[in-house]
Structures are given as C-alpha cells and as structure tokens.
C-alpha cells in the first residue's frame, strides 16, 4: 500500500505541500496586496485631509462669509463664491433634467426589446464612444457648433417669452444654456449605463406577468418596470448629478466666466470647478488659499452626492439579490 502512494509523495514536481520558501513568498505577497488595498483608503483620507489643511487659513480668515459673498476681489482680499455655487448647482440641475431624461429613455430603449440584439450592441457602443470623448473636445465643439445652433432658438424664446425669468436675457455667446446642454451630453452615458444595469436586474417573470395581464408595452414599462427599477434609476440620476458637479473643462470654455447669479438660461455664469481652473495657474499666495477653500466646498458637495448615490446603488443590489 505504501509503495503505491510513495511516488506521489516524494517528488515535489507535480503536486505536494509548499516549501518553506514558497510559504514565505506567499506571506510577503499577501501583505503587499493588503498594503495596496489599504493604500486606497489612505489615499482618499490623505486627499481629504490635505485639501482641508490647505483651506484652513482661508476658513479662519473668511469663515462662512466665503459661502455667501459674491465678489472675488484679489486686490482687496475679499472672496466669496456664492455665484459659483449657484452656477454649479444650476448647471448640474439643468444637465440632470435633460441628460437624466434622455439617459433613462436610452436605457429603456436598450433593455425593453425595442431593437434586436445586434442593433442594441451597436447603439451601446455609440453611447460608450460618447462617454469616451474628452471634455475639452466637447468644449471646442460647443463653441463652434452648439452656440451658433442655439442662438436663433434662444433669440426667439427671449423675444417672445422674455418676461419669464428663465428667458430674461439674450444668448450672447457662452452662457448657462450651452454649458448645461454639453453637460447633459456628458452625463447621459453615465445615467444610461447605470439605468441599463438597474433594468437588467428586474426578474423576467415580473415583465411576463405584466404582459400576461394585457398591458401595452408602455403601460408595462411605466407602471411595472420603472417602479421596480426605481431605486437603481435613482442611483443613476444621483451619480450623474455628481459627475455633472465635478465637470470642469467644457464648462470653463462655455459658461462665460461671469461672477453673477441669474435665473436666465442664457446669461453667462461661473462654476466652482471653472473658477479653480481659471484662477489657479497664476494665483498668488493669498488667492491660492481662497481657492483651496473653494476646492474644499466643491469636494464637500461632490463627496456627499457621490456617497449618497452609491448608498442608493448598494440598497438596490441588496434589494434584488435578497429577492432572489
């Protein structure tokens, strides 16, 4: 009996317990991998701490007046980012309204058997290519194509409905509307991708049951599929909003860089990210501190929105996995 198993035990070539050296390598490599994973946590913490630390002098200097002030005056040392906060939130909200609706529509288009599988893949690729285009290229395109395209429509809206605050000024060139539209185009793939995911998670039998009861296609979508996928779609919208808040370059090129607060869709404005992009390169010591404070404000807003979106996404996954 011993002889039978002897050959397998002695050689160490094909199989056998690991040698001491292999144990050591194993331990070493596993600790390296652990350290790397830990480094991610350290990195995020370091980012938060560093930006907070750099903003401290400015927080001490300007306090909460920074968030309510409306001028950015380097020579007098008065800094306020209320117009920028307004611009950030307003442009992102507009982008969410447009990009969100389109994103969900595309997700429905892709997952609810409107087109065959091949076409759906092609269309999916188109949307992914849209996501791949860099922000600066969208900015350039916006100046050359979008603004001239919007001018006639904006003029008509302003002339006929000028009393309405949203159309209160004319579109001179760069402004809130072109910026929000480009932003919508940029977050559309994000919203679409996460919504597609959400729709895919719905168990097939739910759809079958709805059709079995005689609903039309859209009744099934609106009354059954959408409510079931609602938390996933909500996550998509929140994460899309988070992406819009942080977008920099296309906005810096298209929003007009004017530090004012206006409801009009066509007036120029400014956002936190474009303020940072425009003023940082040539800023002196005092201005850098104020900009760090602005960076902290942006960080706080985007961090909160992203964490909220991810939490909703976790909840969705747990909801569906639990059901199964």
């Amino acid at each position: 009996m011993e002889k039978l198993f002897q050959a397998a035990n002695t050689s160490g070539s094909i199989s056998g317990p690991p040698s001491a050296r292999e144990y050591f390598n194993d331990r070493l490599f596993r600790s390296i991998a652990l350290t790397s994973a830990f480094l991610i946590i350290v990195l995020v913490a370091y980012i938060l701490w560093e930006i907070g630390r750099e903003a401290m002098p400015a927080i001490g200097e300007y306090g909460l007046g920074f968030v309510t002030g409306t001028t950015w005056n380097v020579s007098k040392g008065e800094f306020g980012v209320l117009p920028e906060i307004w611009g950030t939130l307003y442009s992102s909200l507009l982008a969410l309204l447009i990009g969100g609706v389109f994103g969900i529509a595309i997700a429905i288009f892709l997952t609810q058997d409107f087109i065959n599988h091949r076409l759906a893949t092609v269309f999916r690729t188109v949307i992914e290519m849209l996501a791949a285009i860099p922000s600066v290229v969208f900015g350039l395109w916006g100046i050359y194509v979008l603004i001239p395209l919007l001018k006639p429509g904006a003029e008509w809206l302003h002339d006929s409905l000028g009393w309405f605050p949203l159309f209160g000024t004319n579109l001179s060139g760069p402004g809130m509307a072109p910026a929000a539209l480009v932003l919508a185009i940029m977050i559309l793939p994000t919203v679409a991708a996460i919504s597609v995911d959400a729709f895919r998670r719905i168990p097939y039998k739910v759809k079958e049951a709805a059709y079995g009861m005689g609903t039309t296609r859209w009744e099934a979508i609106l009354k059954v599929m959408l409510p079931t996928a609602s938390s996933g779609v909500l996550a998509a919208l929140v994460l899309g909003f988070g992406r819009a808040l942080g977008e920099t370059m296309a906005l810096a090129m298209l929003i007009g860089n004017a530090n004012q607060i206006s409801l009009s869709l066509f007036s120029p404005a400014n956002t936190l990210a474009s303020l940072l992009a425009s003023n940082f390169p040539e800023a002196g010591r005092i201005e850098v501190q104020a900009l760090m404070y602005a960076a902290l404000v942006l960080l706080a807003i985007t961090f909160l929105v992203n964490v909220a979106g991810l939490a909703v996404q976790q909840y969705t996954i747990r909801k569906f996995e639990g059901k199964k």
Binding site: R243, L245, G246, E247, A273, M292, A295, L298
Partner: peptide, 10 residues
C-alpha cells in the same frame, strides 16, 4: 466620481 480638478489641487 471624483472631480478631476480636485486631483490637480491635491
């Protein structure tokens, strides 16, 4: 979802 400009600030 981190804004790319904040990576630059960091």
């Amino acid at each position: 979802g981190f804004p790319s400009i904040l990576a630059g600030v960091f």
